[in-house]
Structure formats: C-alpha cells, structure tokens
C-alpha cells in the first residue's frame, strides 16, 4: 500500500472517530464558524495573491491568474525600497518590546491589584481598560496631542513648565528610529496590558482562596504569595497571553495607522508589516489587494511559525495533556 493512502486513511479514521465522539457536539458550531470565516477566506486570500485583484473588483480580476507576479513585486519592493526594509525591522522591534510590556505589565497589574482593596482595584482596572474601550480615532487623538512635537503637546508643555527643556522635542520624527518606536510601543502597550490584566485577574479570582489564607497564616509576604502561589497557578494563562499577544501584535495595525497618517511618528519607522498590508490593500490611491494578499499570506506563514515555536518553547505539549478522568 502506498504511503500517502496509509496516511489519508489514518486521517480519515481519525476524522470519523472525531465525528463520532461526544466532543463534536460541543465543537460543531465553532468549527463551522471557523471554517466559513477563517479557513475558506484564507484560502480565497491565498488564491487572490495569484490574481491582480485591486480596488475590490472581484468580478473582473478574480478570474485572471498572474502566477507569482505579486510575490515577485513584494520581494522586489523589499529588496529595493528602503521604506519596506525598515518596515520589517520596525515589526521585529515593535513586537518584541510591546510583547514584553503587555505580558509583564498585565501580570504586574493583576497581581498588584490583588493586593489592594476591592474598590481601588476596580477603579484601576477600569482605568487600564480604557485604552481598549476607546474608539481608535479618539485614542490616537489623545496620544497625538500627548506627544505632539510642539509647545501644544502635553509632554512638551509639562517639561517646558518644569524648566527641563528650552525647546520642544520631536520624539516621533526627530529621534529616529528609537523615538518613533518608543511611541508606537507605548501606545500599543497600553492597549495590550489590559488584556493580560483581565485574564490574569479573573484567573486569580478563581484560585482557591484557602491557599492564600493558609500562606498568610504561615506569615508569607506579598512577594512569597506572588512567587509561590499566584504565578505557578497562572502558568496556563501566561502561556496563553504570551502566544496570543505575540500573534495580535504581528497582525495589529489599527492603533498605528492614524499616528503615521497624522505625521506624529516617522512613516518608515512607524509602519509595521501588518499596517503596510492594510495601507496597500485599502488606503493607497490604488487599492492593490493582490499585492496585499501576497504580503498577507507571507505574514500569516511567518506568524504561524512564530506562534508554533512559542507554543513549543512554553511547553504547550505538557499543558495540553489529555484531561484526566474522561469517561
């Protein structure tokens, strides 16, 4: 028997087994939605990366096949256009730094609010959730004025009043590239922190209370409780938040594009790969969705690999042990 058919019959067998299992009842709805709104669209996107699709004209261009043309154009731009090169450097720096801010910040906030009284904790959570709840245009507006490179900017205004500077500093355009990166990491970091905070806080709330009380009785300090009880109990959530935020950051563009458009940050060092795709597909004069699809497919592949590696590194296999005691 040829190898491939062995494989496929095994896969088929596994599939049959899955369909027959009780779990399929719980998963059916999710799998249906995932198939319709993820799997099929991504297949369509892969297909579109081989067509000259632009300006949303599906009827006209979907039937034209141009082979690897879009991929060629993408790599040509990458090789020749310094702006496109800086997009990749920016993406790497942005993702690494913001990820650290998000996970550590979220964890610190969740733990810190655990040690303060309920009312204060609620207020702080609301405050830190605001960035996630604010409309993107308004959120961008806040930081646009906050970092504005003139005396109208909040930071410049304060520093000037304090006598620390004599002339406004242009962080996003004047200090290249680190000033631009600092702003985009800051702005996105604040949005991401709330995610970790909520996940970790609600997880901490589910930790059996007896553990903490017992530790307190034994005279444990805040630090002991954090290190010996909270963090170990949150392992699954830390893995989840890290991987999740990694992928989020690789694919996020919404909190960046207005900052770039309004000129607060340098275009080359404020644009990430995902924003580049968004700009190419939907913002430039010619909405080049074929090229964007090619850049997007490559992004999806790279992100998936990075996500996969992260899961492996963080011990996904161990955490995903089959549930004990299934009937």
């Amino acid at each position: 028997m040829p190898k491939s058919s062995v494989f496929s019959s095994k896969a088929l067998h596994g599939f049959k087994q899955f369909v027959r299992s009780e779990a399929s009842r719980f998963l059916a709805l999710a799998l249906f939605l995932v198939a319709v709104f993820y799997i099929i669209p991504i297949c369509i996107s892969v297909y579109m990366s081989f067509t000259p699709l632009r300006n949303w004209n599906i009827d006209r261009y979907a039937g034209i096949f141009v082979g690897l043309e879009n991929y060629y154009r993408f790599f040509y731009l990458l090789a020749n256009d310094p702006s496109v090169k800086s997009v990749f450097l920016t993406t790497a720096v942005f993702v690494a730094l913001t990820l650290a801010v998000n996970v550590l910040g979220g964890l610190s906030l969740a733990i810190a609010t655990f040690f303060v009284n309920e009312r204060a904790a609620g207020g702080l959570q609301l405050l830190w959730l605001l960035p996630r709840m604010t409309p993107i245009a308004v959120y961008s507006l806040i930081w646009y004025y906050f970092f504005h490179p003139s005396s109208i900017g909040t930071i410049n205004g304060i520093l000037y009043k304090l006598g620390l500077i004599s002339k406004p500093i242009d962080i996003g355009q004047g200090i290249i590239p680190w000033g631009a990166w600092a702003i985009i990491v800051f702005v996105n970091g604040l949005v991401g922190v709330s995610y970790g905070m909520i996940v970790f806080t609600s997880a901490i709330n589910n930790i059996p209370k007896e553990l903490v009380i017992a530790a307190r009785v034994d005279g444990a300090s805040n630090w002991d409780i954090t290190r010996k009880i909270l963090v170990p109990m949150l392992r699954w959530h830390i893995l989840y938040v890290t991987t999740w935020q990694l992928l989020s950051l690789l694919t996020t563009y919404d909190h960046l594009f207005l900052l770039v458009k309004w000129g607060l940050v340098n275009r080359d060092y404020g644009t990430t790969w995902s924003l580049y795709i968004y700009n190419t597909a939907f913002l430039t004069g010619l909405q080049d969705q074929g090229l964007a699809a090619a850049a997007g497919v490559i992004l999806v592949i790279v992100s998936s690999i990075l996500g996969f590696i992260t899961l492996k590194l963080m011990g996904f296999d161990k955490l995903i042990k089959p549930p004990r005691g299934d009937l």
Binding site: Y72, R73, Y76, L77, N80, D81, P82, S83, V84, Q173, G174, I176
Partner: peptide, 21 residues
C-alpha cells in the same frame, strides 16, 4: 526637516519609483 538635501530628495523619489515595478 533637513534629513535629506533637495538633491538627495530628488534621488529618493527616483529610488522610490524604481523600487516599485
């Protein structure tokens, strides 16, 4: 902003145009 001289800026335009097939 002074990051490019007028001459370099023209060259920048040329390179941007040539970078895009």
């Amino acid at each position: 902003r002074g990051t490019l001289s007028p001459k370099d800026a023209v060259d920048f335009l040329v390179s941007k145009i040539n970078a895009d097939p």
